[in-house]
Amino acid sequence: MKALVSVKRVVDYNVRIQVKSDGTGVVTDGVKHSMNPFDEIAMEEAVRLKEKGKVTEIVAVTIGGDKNEETLRTALAFGADRAIHIKEAGEVQPLTAAKAFAAVLKKEGAQLFIAGKQAIDDDANQTGQMVAALLDIAQATFASKVEVEGNKAIVTREVDAGLETLEVDLPAVITADLRLNEPRYLKLPDIMKAKKKPVETVSFADLGVTPAAGLKTTKTVPPPSRSKGIVVKTVDELVSALKAKGLV
């Protein structure tokens, strides 16, 4: 069975982002980028399913400008067999991304679409669900455990109340939560090998996708800053400070 894994290039999770003073967005030029952490987990899960013999081929897919090829090479170093680069220089919002991924999923006849549960830049948490909706297939979001048996998957999901288990028929969409696995460190030989793996470039037009009307961003500002507080020396001081504010 074939698995399709979507990966996104985002500002690295350790970067303290800076909002542009003219309110048009955040500074991304010259800032360290890497694969969205949730997508690394999605890739790792696909590779583990392949190592268990449940998946025969892993296809990594991304949407974005030229620099996204780096992200695809990372996916290939993880163990993807080949990659598809949907080239689009501008901003792509979740519904449009989902339409493109759904088209690729259909074209490839993949039985699993594994994605991260959210990208750490737009924090939308939408794309996987939208892919499932567009294709009328099952979704198991926020997965912390995945078992594939024949033509179905048993997925444990992280929900507010605890852990929920669903059984879904394939094809299905699974979105990865942080606790699904621990992504492996990429070894140099794998990174070298990844350079030789095939990357196919396609456009929205090739996939028959018309971008959906998007949300228009009118302004981006930093959050209100918290003023620096005081450091107390003793527990007594802390307790009286909290009592003075009526908090305890």
């Binding site: 919002q93 979740p94 519904l95 989902a98 939308a124 948490n125 939408q126 794309t127 996987g128 669900q129 939208m130 499932a132 909706a133 567009l134 979704q139 979001t141 926020f142 999901r157 992280e158 929900v159 507010d160 959906a212 009307a213 998007g214 949300l215």
Partner: peptide, 19 residues
């Protein structure tokens, strides 16, 4: 909540709107 986050995009996509 996890309920809303799981469900809303599925509804939005079916209505063909961004969420």
């Amino acid at each position: 909540t996890t309920f809303g986050k799981d469900l809303a995009p599925r509804v939005a996509a079916k209505l063909d709107v961004q969420q």
